[in-house]
């Protein structure tokens, strides 16, 4: 779908899963970067072949989203020495990998609180945040070093992206049995006063395999 200007301040773009991305230029280049940066890519070979990522691109940003399978998560975290209870806790949740690159000159703000996950009943899904995970690790007895590793595989809560800078990582949701959508809003400019860019990914699914 083509990007469109929804209002004076919000640029709204929707990319439905299975549809064609708005532009195809640089998608291959971005995919290469993304593939390199995929945190668990080393272990993917052992896992089931993943469904392709959803990629959105316009002149301002590139965004890449895919949900993880339990096999992928087990392959990565078990290989990093996570205990079984922690791995089980991870695979009970729904993990979404996202990567964003800022193509524009001004700053682009990734702020996870500006992103919304919406279920099939049009209700908002609360993200599982870092504090929630810390509580999980207290219950599963995950050592500090592993907690730190887990933290580095997650998207930062907030990040100002310079031109050509990208950031990638995972975020997690309670398991969803029905498709959901992600509406990602990005403030722009150093003081966040620029136009808000909005990208929507429809029909995302938690994957059992």
């Amino acid at each position: 779908m083509r990007s469109s200007l929804r209002s004076n301040t919000i640029q709204h773009n929707t990319f439905a899963v299975g549809g064609a991305p708005p532009t195809k230029t640089s998608v291959r280049q971005f995919s290469t970067i993304a593939a390199t940066l995929l945190l668990i890519s080393i272990d993917l070979a052992a896992a089931e072949k993943p469904a392709g990522p959803e990629i959105y691109e316009d002149s301002n940003l590139i965004m890449y989203v895919m949900t993880r399978t339990p096999e992928q998560l087990i392959a990565f975290y078990s290989a990093r020495g996570f205990n079984q209870a922690s791995v089980d806790a991870i695979t009970e949740r729904c993990f979404v990998f996202a990567m964003v690159e800022n193509k524009a000159q001004g700053k682009l703000w990734l702020v996870l609180d500006d992103w919304q996950f919406i279920n099939a009943d049009n209700k908002s899904i609360d993200r599982i945040n870092r504090a929630d995970w810390n509580q999980v690790w207290r219950n599963t007895g995950l050592p500090q070093a592993k907690q730190s590793t887990f933290g580095w595989t997650q998207l930062p809560e907030s990040r100002d992206l310079h031109q050509h800078e990208h950031v990638g990582g995972q975020l997690s949701l309670p398991w969803q049995n029905t498709p959901f959508k992600l509406v990602a809003n990005f403030k722009t400019a150093s003081d966040k006063s620029g136009p808000v860019r909005q990208v929507t990914f429809e029909n995302l699914k938690c994957r059992k395999q």
Partner: peptide
């Protein structure tokens, strides 16, 4: 940095 805490003090923009 065996427990990762020094790295967290530095707050790098990623690895």
């Amino acid at each position: 940095d065996p427990d990762g805490l020094t790295t967290e003090d530095w707050q790098p923009r990623g690895l």
